[in-house]
């Protein structure tokens, strides 16, 4: 019989999250972010957390909600350009920020979940990002040593999932979610649709349930669009 990861609600899913922890949050911009878990983290009022997330949300949505409440001590991200409050806290020194190349961020999460302690990449060689990092030539080209990332909790958002924790993502909402699911000591998956066991085609599963410790049916998704670009009919 399959191992059930299903929990009742977001409160049960976030049980054990404490101040000072390192948290990973999936998403690219506002696409594929764990909206329900973020709302719960705000409600819990935890402080001094380190957040690993590609972006920092916008002023009034996504991780911006945690920034507004000054709950974040440190951000590890690749791009933070859409958030005025973030920029203000960073430039004033209230918020510690570690900016790292997007591909290195993705691979560091993947490595963290895959038991690879570090790897060499050409990205960032000759830049600020390389400061203090080991440099080594491979095939005549310099590379820098990047270490793996893990987190006390990883929060991911999927389109569909089952009680076993198997996940299927939709379109570009996949982004960082699969790697962060791998890298969380406790990975919390919220899904738009929790389907009965046996309904997901095993051929189509993106994240196998072994990487997920808790799964719950999310609700009230706003799925805000950051840049609505359309052609007029």
């Amino acid at each position: 019989m399959a191992i059930s990861k299903q929990v009742k609600d977001v409160t049960a899913a976030c049980s054990g999250v404490e101040s000072g922890m390192t948290l990973m949050l999936g998403g690219f911009g506002l696409c594929g972010i764990p909206e329900c878990s973020i709302a719960e983290l705000v409600r819990l009022g935890i402080q001094d957390v380190t957040c690993i997330s590609n972006n920092a949300g916008v002023d009034d949505f996504g991780l911006g909600l945690l920034l507004q409440q000054r709950q974040i001590r440190k951000m590890i991200s690749s791009y933070v350009g859409e958030n005025d409050e973030f920029e203000r806290q960073m430039l004033s020194g209230e918020l510690e920020v570690d900016l790292i190349p997007q591909g290195s961020l993705a691979e560091r999460c993947r490595a963290g979940g895959a038991g690879i302690p570090a790897f060499y990449t050409p990205a960032g060689y000759g830049t600020e990002v390389a400061a203090g990092k080991e440099v080594r030539d491979f095939n005549g080209k310099p590379h820098i040593l990047e270490s793996a990332l893990t987190a006390d909790f990883a929060f991911v958002k999927a389109w569909k999932g089952d009680a076993s924790g198997n996940l299927i993502f939709k379109a570009t909402a996949r982004n960082f979610n699969p790697m962060m699911a791998m890298a969380g000591k406790i990975t919390v998956a919220e899904v738009e649709e929790l389907v009965p066991e046996g309904e997901l085609d095993p051929n189509s599963v993106h994240t196998p349930g072994i990487f997920v410790q808790r799964i719950f049916q999310g609700s009230g998704y706003e799925k805000r669009i950051e840049q609505r670009t359309v052609q007029s009919r």
Binding site: S78, Y79, M90, V97, L99, P101, S104, A123, V129
Partner: peptide
């Protein structure tokens, strides 16, 4: 400071 995103 916007960050490098995927540029690096």
């Amino acid at each position: 400071v916007k960050g490098m995103g995927g540029a690096m």
